[in-house]
Computed example of a mutant assay.
Amino acid sequence: MSGIELRDETLSVDRALNQLDELAIAFSDILDQVGIEHVYIAGYVSILAGRARSTEDVDVLIEPIDEATADTLTTHLEAENFWGPAMPLSSLYSMLENGDPVWVAPTDQITPHLEVTLFSRLAEPGALVPLARQKRVCMKTVLPSARGYQNLRNLG
């Protein structure tokens, strides 16, 4: 496919950014500021790999966090004009601890949104895509395999 290349376990997507890309990059920037490891999974990864499909959310797994880190994340999200369309961001820690996914979106927007889940709640093999902050979307991908599953388990 034009603009997509897998080389040395890195999936490079050289195209104009779309709304999902911009959302994922903005969220990665915030998670990086707070020091939270994360990976993108599911439909968004398929779209990055060139599959023609639509999605209303970007699924992201984050490492387990404590309440203080959740509060810091909430502060950063609110400062960057994000909100919780399905619940207030102040509920972030309790929702994640209960095993519930948390929706996060730019203020007053419902879709597209991020669906955030703790890694320990969804530990299955699959494609991992830590998003790099670059002018173009450039992803590190671990394809579904025994090695990929081990990398995913090491996150937890």
Results as ranks from 00 to 15, higher is better:
Ala70Glu: 03
Ala70Ser: 12
Asp71Ile: 03
Asp71Gly: 03
Thr72Leu: 14
Leu73Trp: 05
Leu73Val: 00
Leu73Lys: 01
Thr74Ile: 04
Thr74Phe: 05
Thr75Val: 07
Thr75Lys: 04
Thr75Ala: 11
His76Gln: 14
Glu78His: 02
Ala79Ser: 14
Glu80Lys: 10
Glu80Ala: 15
Asn81Ser: 13
Asn81Phe: 08
Asn81Arg: 13
Trp83Asn: 02
Gly84Thr: 04
Pro85Arg: 02
Ala86Tyr: 07
Met87Glu: 14
Met87Cys: 07
Pro88Trp: 08
Pro88Asp: 05
Leu89Asn: 06
Ser90Trp: 00
Ser90Thr: 15
Ser90Tyr: 00
Leu92Asp: 09
Leu92Trp: 05
Ser94His: 12
Met95Trp: 05
Met95Leu: 08
Leu96Trp: 03
Leu96Ala: 05
Asn98Phe: 04
Asn98Ile: 00
Gly99Asp: 11
Pro101Arg: 09
Pro101Gly: 01
Val102Glu: 06
Ala105Leu: 07
Ala105Trp: 03
Pro106Gln: 10
Pro106Trp: 11
Pro106Glu: 10
Pro106Val: 06
Thr107Phe: 11
Gln109Cys: 08
Gln109Leu: 10
Ile110Ala: 10
Ile110Gln: 11
Ile110Cys: 01
Pro112Leu: 07
Pro112Thr: 04
His113Trp: 02
Leu114Asp: 07
Val116Ala: 03
Thr117Tyr: 02
Thr117Asp: 04
Leu118Asn: 03
Phe119Arg: 14
Phe119Pro: 00
Ser120Asn: 12
Arg121Val: 11
Arg121His: 15
Leu122Ile: 10
Ala123Met: 15
Pro125Val: 05
Ala127Asn: 08
Ala127Thr: 11
Pro130Thr: 02
Leu131Met: 12
Ala132Ile: 12
Arg133Phe: 09
Arg133Met: 13
Gln134Ala: 15
Gln134Thr: 15
Arg136Val: 14
Cys138Glu: 14
Met139Ala: 15
Lys140Val: 06
Lys140Gln: 14
Thr141Met: 13
Thr141Lys: 08
Thr141Pro: 00
Val142Gln: 12
Val142Arg: 12
Leu143Val: 05
Pro144Thr: 03
Pro144Phe: 02
Ser145Gln: 06
Ala146Gln: 09
Ala146Leu: 13
Ala146Tyr: 06
Arg147Ala: 15
Arg147Lys: 09
Gln150Thr: 13
Gln150Trp: 08
